[in-house]
Simulated assay, not measured.
Amino acid sequence: MLLIEQALNGLQYGMMLFLMAAGLTLVFGVMGLINLAHGALYMVGAFACAAVAGATGSFWLGLAASLAAAAAAGAVVELLVIRRLYARDHLDQVLATFALILVFSEGTRWLFGSFPLYLTLPPLLSGAVTLPGGLQYPLFRLALIGLGAAIAFGLYLLITRTRLGTRIRAGEADREMVAALGVDIARLYTAVFALGAALAGLAGALVGTIQSVQVGMGEPVLILAFVVIVIGGIGSVKGALVGALLVGMTDTLGKAFLPGVLARLIDPSAANTIGSAIASVLIYVLMAGVLIVRPQGLYGERGMA
């Protein structure tokens, strides 16, 4: 039962990482942009959800606000700042988007203060369900797994079956040719950036119901999102999903079981600390192993920058 419960926790964690990494890999793959401010958009979505839900008493309105606020913030950032960075080298992109992290963090602190906010689950998603075998598992976490899977399928359909998806794939392969064929590349880039920001904002709002909503909450998740897209392959939504699930499972199962294994060899109090630290390191060991075997990532194209 413990193994099944922790596997479900890892699956839920992986789905949340996927929502964060999917937008990042789209932006990186299509636009060639290193966007360190992606975590700030995750934070914007969380705060928008908490603020609207607190003011209206409706979690669902807060969830809609997280999508709208993050997408709008992403579109504004792309129009005012990011658009000037496409022709610049990656160092300029890193410095500019790092500055955006500071702007968003201080702006959020000015608006909401430094104290964390908390989200309350709606009655529809509260409580637990009994799974086969008698395991009691939180309904909301199961809903997160289902929502993540649905969004992954929706992104697959968007990328492979729609005109916008065709343009996104074409823009990733040869943006100059796409522009020559009459596609408005500037508008396409804004749409892709806003889509990625909306996914990040949604992830922030959902995670905010499990943890707290606070300034700076996006930076730790951003690091893991970069690990995910490196494992999965830059520009690949399928790779982002597989990479996120691998990272989520590795982190969750490692933290659940490594302390118990080490406790048989060393002092239990030290085993808990060391086991959690090793579990965190295993994520990067996994990334290194994938890069040794496939430098382009699991689903990336060989030679992609």
Rank of each mutant, 00 (worst) to 15 (best):
T120F: 09
L79S: 07
V129R: 03
Y137N: 03
L91E: 10
R141I: 10
A128I: 00
L121K: 06
D92C: 07
S126R: 12
A87P: 00
G148I: 08
G165T: 00
A87Q: 08
T162H: 01
G127P: 13
D89M: 14
L79A: 14
F140N: 00
L144E: 01
T130H: 13
P123H: 04
R88I: 00
I159T: 12
L147P: 03
L142N: 00
L164K: 01
A96E: 06
I159C: 08
I159K: 07
F153K: 07
G133R: 12
G165I: 01
S114A: 15
G148D: 06
G134M: 08
L95C: 12
Q93V: 05
V103W: 01
R83N: 08
A128Y: 03
V103G: 03
R161Y: 01
P116S: 07
S126G: 14
L164P: 01
A149V: 14
G165L: 01
Y137E: 01
P132N: 12
L125E: 03
S105V: 14
L157H: 09
L95H: 09
R109F: 12
S114K: 13
Y156F: 05
L135W: 11
F104N: 07
G133D: 14
T130C: 10
A150S: 08
L142W: 01
L79K: 11
P122Y: 02
L102F: 12
G134Y: 07
F153W: 15
D89E: 15
L144W: 01
V103S: 03
R88S: 09
R83T: 08
A87V: 07
F112L: 11
A149D: 01
A143T: 01
R88L: 10
I101G: 01
V94G: 04
A143L: 02
A96V: 15
F140W: 13
E106T: 14
T97F: 04
L117V: 07
E106P: 10
P138C: 05
I82N: 03
